[in-house]
Design a protein around this nucleic acid. Structure first.
Lengths: 205, 205
DNA sequence: GCAGGAATCAAACGATCGTTTGAGCATACG
DNA sequence: CGTATGCTCAAACGATCGTTTGATTCCTGC
């Protein structure tokens, strides 16, 4: 973890991620943002074209990585007869926890939670078009493992699970790591906790 | 349900609730807001003092009612030996569903979801000071019914449940009512659905 | 070593924001 | 009737927003 990233574009993206998480997309101005990044005000429009395009790039940088890991993990277990509900949940949750615990990525989940709360059509369309296939594939696999649920019940429960996880990983409600466990162990314990809760909810009678 | 509420204050509050839900607290301007309410721009600062105080009043109007119903329902069952986890969840969920289904209150849960996503200190402090005791009493009752959980696990699971429910009730992911069931029946079915999911999650092994 | 595109910079643009002002209108009370 | 009092109104305030401009500096390839 270095103090200042290399390029101007990356400095802007990192500062934007933090300020969007803290003050929202409207609440964080380009003047605060460029001041925090140590770059000129005009650099945002020069490198990204507009504030909206900057917002999209903030999402793209993390979601490409996050959903890539998710799809890789899912593809290893999807359709196999020995795959359990917990396996699929682990493929969904663990990449997010890894991102959440590595250096600068911890604030991104809060940006994502904001995007959920904002019912902004432009942002929703962007997320749906670029990353909607990930949720569809996970939902399909959940459906395979929960054949007793109607399609309606399945959608509902997946929605409840994603809501709970987004809320949990964006908040500082996150359980603090005890000083006598390594971060790797703590991350495993957190994942176990979330997976057990989500699996029980999905499997509800 | 009448087209235009009586007083200027109520017209402002109703328009504010809708616009805050749709565009956020920063995104909705006082000019849009007063135009939608059919009142003069200066009326907000005359009747409420500032935009921030208006935001607080939007919360106060609904939360006084919502948490009043929640506390009444909880007080009827708290501490009794025959009370079940589902009973406590019902006391928490059903008042919110009733609010969510009556006329203009349906958008308020989206306002509440925004308040969760915004980590604004002023707003959090206001909500915690005025309504924190409600969550504390519900958490205490959950703890009584789930003695096998450590305090840490209890807090975590309650946080996951509130996250899931807030997310569910704020989204239009809400299951649509079929034309052959009354709204009252539909509300009962929705409550059953949420309660079953939450109880299973809280009771996870 | 110099030409030329890429990048940075200070400054300004028009628009919109929350808030304030002071005059005008209404209703109620002596 | 006169006059307070509560409310509404158009207009303006200063601040801040995203964006654009044009000059300047940096850096690379011939």
């Amino acid at each position: 973890m270095q103090a200042v990233p290399h390029s101007t574009k990356e400095r802007i993206l990192t500062a934007a991620e933090e300020l969007f998480a803290r003050h929202g997309f409207d609440g964080a101005s380009l003047r605060q943002l460029t001041a925090a990044a140590g770059v000129n005000l005009a650099a945002v429009n020069y490198h990204f074209g507009s504030k909206d395009r900057l917002i999209e790039e903030v999402f793209r940088r993390r979601l490409d990585q996050l959903n890539g890991h998710r799809m890789t993990a899912l593809s290893r277990i999807a359709g196999l007869p020995e795959t359990s509900l917990e396996d699929v949940l682990a493929a969904f949750i663990k990449p997010a926890l890894e991102l959440s615990h590595e250096g600068s990525g911890s604030l991104f989940m809060r940006v994502l939670a904001r995007a959920f709360a904002e019912h902004d059509d432009t942002l929703r369309k962007f997320l749906s078009e670029n990353y909607g296939h990930v949720m569809r594939q996970f939902t399909a696999e959940f459906g395979r493992l929960l054949p007793q649920l109607s399609r309606e019940e399945l959608y509902w429960r997946v929605d409840l699970v994603t809501g709970a996880l987004t809320h949990a990983m964006s908040g500082f409600g996150m359980i603090q790591r005890k000083s006598d466990v390594t971060e790797r162990v703590h991350r495993e314990q957190t994942a176990e906790h979330l997976i057990r809760f989500a699996a029980a909810g999905l499997n509800a009678p």
